[in-house]
Amino acid sequence: MVPRFWRKIKYRYEILTSFCENCGNHYYPQREICPKCRREGVLKEEKVCDYGKVLSYTVVNGRTIALVEFDNGAKMLAEVCGKVEIGKKVRKAFRKYGEDGDFGIIYYGTKFIPIEEQN
């Protein structure tokens, strides 16, 4: 499964959405065709800002997994390091997602950190 991870490294290490110049929609993960415009769509890669907010979340196997929404409307499922609630602002972080045993490769990717309210 190494090639399968390697192929998407760019999109795992950085949050890149597909922006359709025809309809203005943003998609994550990146798409090869705009589902709204299909062949009329013109997709461009766009880096989203480092912040998002939690639309919903769960805690499973001891990890917090959240659906994070960005200002441009794209949504991303990712792990959050720390406690969250719906609506909480989060910031991206580069973290390890796992590794293929003791001998295999290490899977890095984007997670999120809750931003504590400033007092």
């Binding site: 390091c81 580069f94 973290r95 390890k96 290490i106 890095y108």
Partner: peptide, 16 residues
């Protein structure tokens, strides 16, 4: 470090 942090992840954060 957190359990999912290592030299690579900290390097990226500092560099960013």
């Amino acid at each position: 470090p957190d359990i999912d942090e290592d030299t690579a992840t900290m390097s990226v954060e500092a560099s960013r």
